[in-house]
């Protein structure tokens, strides 16, 4: 169970805006899609949860443990939060092969092999990201985030580079995997309809002046 109550000032051409998410609770095993207009702070919201950005005000609690409390200046580092994060630009490491990406994240060889099978990347395990297609890179980014067996998985536009068929197959497989791992998943999307059938909750994000 995660509860979040944060306020973060956003820089915008149209003046000062605030990202406010209050008392949202995400239950174990839930998959929530997050949507809203461009510049509303969807990515910022995910980065705040991961500990990559600190908000002006807020509290984040995970299973009763305080990850962030600005009033007491408590802020767990991203390394301690260990959330799975799928970046919009993939953030793959150009110097590492597919397998090395997963080995960097975990020493569990069996888990690495399973992830490669799920992502259909077994035959490409010695390839570096520059030799993968956009869809393969996106799958690798998802697998790398799952490699640490996180409790919470944050995905920023994870399916945008996949074709319809690949998206459907991957979503079906991820559904099984998410259920098995009991993950809490938050997925940012520009296209909420693409996640129909995968998500059981939704959160609309918009800025306030």
């Amino acid at each position: 169970m995660i509860s979040i109550n944060i306020e973060k000032k956003l820089k915008a051409y149209s003046g000062q805006q605030w990202l406010k998410v209050n008392r949202e609770e995400f239950a174990d095993g839930s998959i929530t899609k997050i949507y809203g207009p461009s510049g509303a702070g969807k990515t910022t919201f995910l980065k705040i949860i991961a500990g990559l950005i600190t908000p002006e005000k807020g509290i984040i609690k995970v299973d009763g443990i305080t990850w962030l409390d600005t009033s007491t200046k408590t802020a767990l580092s991203p390394q301690k939060r260990m959330v799975g994060f799928v970046f919009q630009n993939y953030a793959l490491f150009p110097n590492m092969t597919v397998r090395e990406h997963l080995e960097y994240a975990t020493k569990d060889v069996g888990w690495i092999d399973r992830l490669l099978t799920i992502g259909k990347l077994e035959t490409l395990s010695t390839h570096k990201p520059e030799h993968l297609s956009g869809g393969q890179q996106q799958r690798l980014a998802i697998l790398r985030a799952l490699a640490i067996k996180p409790k919470l998985l944050l995905m920023d536009e994870p399916f945008s580079a996949l074709d319809h068929e690949m998206k459907r197959v991957l979503i079906d497989e991820l559904k099984v995997l998410f259920a098995e791992l009991g993950l809490i998943v938050l997925i940012v999307t520009h296209n909420p309809q693409e996640l129909d059938g995968l998500c059981d909750g939704e959160l609309a994000i918009d800025t306030e002046r």
Partner: peptide
């Protein structure tokens, strides 16, 4: 995002 990705994997 390269550093950030590494931090979320628990790396110092």
């Amino acid at each position: 995002s390269l550093s950030q990705a590494s931090y979320t994997l628990g790396k110092s």
